[in-house]
């Protein structure tokens, strides 16, 4: 009996040791925030950004599962991938907006350059001679 109890204690300690850890809440929160930011700047509307946002979401889900099953270390690495994808989605989305704004500004400069100069006042007709009495 004593031996059995000792074995059971050992087995439970071993289970705790091998059952692993969950991913850190801070890491989860940071990744979620990055995904949310990318969504807020309109990453869905830029194809490449949308793709990376999708990767980020999928990897976040995968990390949650890994975390739940106690594979904390692996979950942390997948979260790092997810966060990197979310940040790339955000950067691509901003790049797209900035390039569009720069093109628009350049187009407005071209328009302003091609505008005809304001018309100069026409030369008035010579004053009519006073009527002869």
């Amino acid at each position: 009996m004593k031996t059995l109890t000792r074995w059971m204690m050992f087995a439970s300690l071993a289970l705790v040791g091998c059952g692993g850890t969950a991913a850190s809440t801070a890491r989860m929160g940071a990744t979620q925030a990055a995904i949310r930011s990318a969504g807020e700047v309109g990453a869905e509307h830029e194809p490449t950004a949308a793709l990376h946002l999708q990767y980020a979401r999928e990897q976040f889900t995968q990390a949650e599962q890994l975390s739940r099953s106690g594979e904390g270390e692996r979950a942390e690495r997948v979260l790092a991938r997810a966060e990197a994808d979310a940040e790339l989605a955000l950067a691509l989305s901003r790049r797209s907006a900035s390039i569009a704004a720069a093109r628009q500004a350049a187009s407005e400069v071209r328009d302003a350059r091609s505008q005809p100069p304001p018309p100069t006042a026409p030369t008035p007709p010579p004053a009519a001679p006073p009527p002869t009495p």
């Binding site: 950067a91 901003r94 790049r95 900035s98 704004a101």
Partner: peptide, 10 residues
């Protein structure tokens, strides 16, 4: 790379 492009466009 994307941030560089963004700053240049800005």
């Amino acid at each position: 790379e994307a941030r560089g492009d963004t700053l240049q466009a800005d």
